[in-house]
Design a protein around this nucleic acid. Structure first.
Lengths: 170, 170
DNA sequence: TTTGTTGCAAATCATTTGCAGACGG
DNA sequence: CCGTCTGCAAATGATTTGCAACAAA
């Protein structure tokens, strides 16, 4: 293909057409390209392939500042025709490589939240409407006081620790 | 039935026979009868019927000082031929009336633990062997220090709050 | 070129449900 | 006796998996 300048020019032109089209539609082009590059680095650094479904799912997780269910992620991908099975496989992968946290809100669905770029935090979930707010502090007493000041009532919490026990360390 | 003394005596005798038989087989009779009475009170006070599957499941939860999965509970009932669906329905009921806590250990199974007679506590779970120890303290920093002194490593935790938000209170 | 990923369709498996008979109060 | 609970069998629905085509490195 080297030296095949006519073809190259035609290709460049096609690319420019593509970019112009994109610019008109998407005013946040620069931000999005930056994100893509960020995701590429994250995946590469963990020896994972950079694929279109993975980037799209990462974008969705990044732009939604609350934990999402598989169904929510999949429906946000509806125009991209990404298979449900791929969504499951991708989120299982992301959990394994620890760039995503799997959260249980005590309903029937698991939720996923991007964590590689965020500091440790928790959530307060409304038992009725399932709305979610982040909780940044980390001492329980202070927390519950804070939450009731914010207007929540009947607060309960669930806290579990996970680790490797003595036996398993050997 | 008043004044029907012959019948009453016969009935009492039958009961005594029953008790003697039980004593020979089960040396912990007193303890178990006490438990049954306790469970009866708990269920009655919440307007729930006292049935044999419910008592058996409560006994299992009471005697196992760690959260159990549905499958574990069901297998401990194997000799009693209690249906799996009944186990599910019973534990959902127990969760609703809040005598049992439903816990997520981030594997595929929900676990259930009796809570009406215990003070609030958490757990530390080994990620490999799934062994469970209770955690009684309740300040996170102290906790994690305590846990690593106990020999756990790579400790993480998961904490979520649940409550009713302002909007839903109206 | 090689290895890993995706889409599709089918399988799996935990959980729920309808119903008829059994049981508790 | 009335209303609820249980066992059974079938349905449901989220999640996983096998496989062939495809894409990334």
């Amino acid at each position: 293909m080297q030296g095949c300048s006519a073809e190259k020019r035609e290709k460049d032109f096609t690319i420019m057409q593509e970019i112009n089209k994109t610019e008109k539609i998407d005013l946040e082009k620069d931000k999005i390209d930056f994100e893509k590059e960020e995701f590429r680095i994250i995946l590469n650094s963990r020896s994972q392939r950079v694929t279109s479904p993975r980037i799209k799912i990462l974008k969705i997780l990044k732009s939604n500042h609350k934990p999402l269910t598989i169904a929510e992620i999949h429906s946000k991908l509806s125009k991209d025709k990404i298979d449900l099975a791929t969504v499951y496989r991708t989120l299982n992968l992301f959990s394994e490589i620890k760039i995503v946290n799997e959260i249980d809100f005590k309903d029937e669905f698991k939720r996923y939240e991007l964590v590689y770029d965020r500091h440790h935090h928790h959530h307060i979930v409304c038992r009725k409407c399932k709305s979610v707010e982040n909780v940044e502090t980390c001492i329980l007493d202070d927390l519950e006081k804070l939450l009731s000041k914010k207007g929540y009532s009947e607060i309960t919490h669930s806290l579990e620790f996970f680790g490797i026990c003595k036996n398993c360390s050997n």
